[in-house]
Amino acid sequence: MPSWVDLISWVCFVLGGLLCITGGVGLLRFPDFFTRVHAVGVTETLAAPLLLSGLALQLGWTLDLVKVVLIMAFILATNPTATHAMARAALHGGHRPVIFGEESERIDSEGIDSEGIDSEGIDSEGIDSEGMASGKMASEKSTSGEGPSSKN
């Protein structure tokens, strides 16, 4: 007959394993980089403390418990930081989130995304309205910038 501590730690192990697999499937099947970041960042931040707390319940009051708590605190501090930093780096590096429903032919945007990012950067995508708006602004500014220069 298992004790209550064993039962709670087993529940933690099973829930942590389920969240692990959920994050892995989301990482493999979601269509965009930002959705993959979302899937992995959310599930991993809960899965790692669940697995480690299940382990800590099995360990009891030993020195290893301190190490497990240290690992848990470190993962809880660094994992959202790393996820946020990666999403920001992708946003700075020219990735734009794929927005479905605006243009129906952009549904298979994964191939376009990879080709566009590797070859030419932002302007080859043209998916989002923000990029188009900023492109229009750039063209306006370029025309207004050409005015005084042509006068001079």
């Binding site: 990482l27 980089f33 970041v37 992708a90 990735h95 994964e110 995304d113 990879s114």
Partner: peptide, 9 residues
């Protein structure tokens, strides 16, 4: 597809 996906993985 991109290098960020590999980094995330």
């Amino acid at each position: 597809p991109s290098v960020y996906d590999r980094m995330l993985a």
